[in-house]
Design a protein around this nucleic acid. Sequence first.
RNA 1: GCCCAGGUGGCGGAAUUGGUAGACGCGCUGGUCUCAAACACCUGUGAGGUUACACUCGUACCGGUUCGACUCCGGUCCUGGGCACCA
Length: 732
Amino acid sequence: MADYLFADVEKHARKLWADQNVYKTDDQSEKPKYYVLDMFPYPSGAGLHVGHPLGYIASDIVSRFKRMKGFNVLHPMGFDAFGLPAEQYAIQTGQHPAITTEQNIKRYVEQMEYIGLSYDWKREITTSDPAYYRWTQWIFLQLFDSWYDKSQDKARPITELIHYFDKNGNVGLQAQCDENVPAFDATAWKSADEQYQSDLLMHYRLAYLAEARVNWCPALGTVLANDEIKDGLSERGGHPVEIRMMRQWMMRILAYSQRLLDGLNEIDWSDAIKEQQRNWIGRSEGALIRFSLEGNNQQIEVFTTRPDTIFGVSFMVLAPEHALVAEIITPENRPHIEAYITKAKNRSERERMADVKTVSGAFTGAYAIHPFTGDKIPVWIADYVLASYGTGAVMAVPGGDERDWRFANHFQLPILDIIEGSDISLAANDSKTSRIINSGFLNGLEVKTAIQKAIEALEKGGLGKGRIQFRLRDAIFSRQRYWGEPVPIYFENGIPKAMPDHLLPLQLPAVDKYLPTEDGEPPLGRAENWTYNGHPIETTTMPGWAGSSWYFLRYMDPHNATTFAERNKIDYWKQVDLYMGGAEHATGHLLYARFWTQFLFDRNWIGFKEPFKKLVNQGMIQGQSKFIYRVEGKNAFVSAGLKNNFKTTAIHVDVNMVKLDVLDLEQFKNWRTEYESAEFLLENPENGEISSTGIFKCGSEVEKMSKSKWNVVNPDDIISQYGADTLRLYEM
RNA sequence: GCCCAGGUGGCGGAAUUGGUAGACGCGCUGGUCUCAAACACCUGUGAGGUUACACUCGUACCGGUUCGACUCCGGUCCUGGGCACCA
């Protein structure tokens, strides 16, 4: 019997498919349509590993099946090409990230072709291609040109808001906007200068400028991702990092929080992913309550889900960053408060949330007044209160909240007993089924009714109001980076304005270095003539998620130069029927893409609200890792059968150096310089005893396949040894 | 720390309104065929135990509910994902 010469057969098939363009998809057809999409990859320098094709092969099988069943199948592929790794490489080597990216993409396409994936390559897109990001910039400008009308529950053009201001100011306006927007009438609006009008509009735009907290590294002169920070120091260079406020472009995604929640009920995604999005959006019902301050006409506003426990408030806590802190500290408390703020300032939110063991805080010296009892309530600051959630201040009810209880216990603040059946000397009681006691007009009520009663009383007394609060925050959109879409905004006398459409794409300029400028401007600050009509152009770029929030639309009409995609093509292909990709995108990409889709629907650019009808998460591939055992404190290794005789540390070794558990010692010694001089204790394979003529065995364990575990299998190797079908079948 | 998911043979994985745990496949064992192997086919394959049966144990761990628990409840551990500038 003759061998199956897979290499020849596959080569022939690839040529045939390419020459005859067999996977080319038409935008018109008598057949019903089916849109199968993979989450497009970031083209990293390492190439595809066997984890990538897991989803691609699955979706490819579905595509082929649907074609055979008589569907017109759209099954495209492209590249999410903007990103940090290419920029880092550019910083190190000076090579333009576009070049690296292009090389990596070439390799990816080749690898995908070898796997035999049936993409319509005529539709390939790359987010870093100016012909593509021209439309990412255009969408940004649509967002800049929009505000959110809560009464109609949709985004509308900013001209219509201006029209409203001309008539009424912002009186009676129901719009999603920043906190603390001043009230103004039509006259005030019309008499305001351009600068002030621009500032007012900024409070309403869906893409807007605001101050936001960022990780600033003074030594590198740049903003860092949490990912680039290890143990409070920059990964590059190990420099200290601090939190700093910076003016950033933001996205008013909060306007869509309720719709993003509701939309989940209409799509076929796993409950796990939906749950993650729900928790991320984090809707909670409760009340905003204002506490007056003693000897100060300012008020502290707090959000609480438990207004029924208001009689249990024995102190208040502000986030160290809270704007009122500076105003209310009494002179004698200033030194230790300032010391505390300095300490808290440089802890990340993650650290602050994770650290529940240590209780810390400081007394401001100020007192608030209880809205119902008139009691004096001490005001503290503590870093367990986060500035970014709610109002950045809480009313502390140690009898009903665990963290408040620990705080009160630690600082010996009073703990009031307001929930029936509690032992407040031992713990807080957060039961939601008990009755309220020692609470004036709320006495004897169950939690649910007490909450309603409390809100009624607050509203009646003008002390507060019922409120739905979301944990979701508006998204920071600016990146202090080079390798991203330039934000198409210029500043005329400091007033941000949209670049005219005919000048899009606003292309990335050449720079001498991919680093921030000396005075801490982003890399685009290095570009010569980064101006429009003599006005400076925005120097931040867009985040990675910008290009990936709408790419599924571009595949429908990838070469259109006059619009992001022709409406009749969008109406034909509609939503993605099957979306395949990793679950790690649950609260990032998948949420942002839903947000932009809802927005494009509102402005009537597309005819549907949800981008991805059905989502399947492909899971991950595991690999068998190999270990060698290093004797502790020595540059010596022992064969696996001997490790119990020594105190050893297991170290990952590249699986490619191991055959049938036996390590290739020569290869290993050449792997890293420190291993050249290492000692190796061999074992006799017959009896497992030490033997100078024996072999060196490795241990093994099944783990996630990852570069850091040295257990990665390259698909190219599998294909050249066994053929594409073997890889495909094995992965399935 | 918080949120989400998961933990079942050597491996991938079946089985849940609570009713024979390990379907199916891979691998491995033995056999048939062959000079021999590969292929193919047949057989066995959770662990202990037995000549063989019996029997005992067994779904991460501890406990509970139940006539009966992989499944339900309480607690614990571990792994993976996310925690807002990685993609």
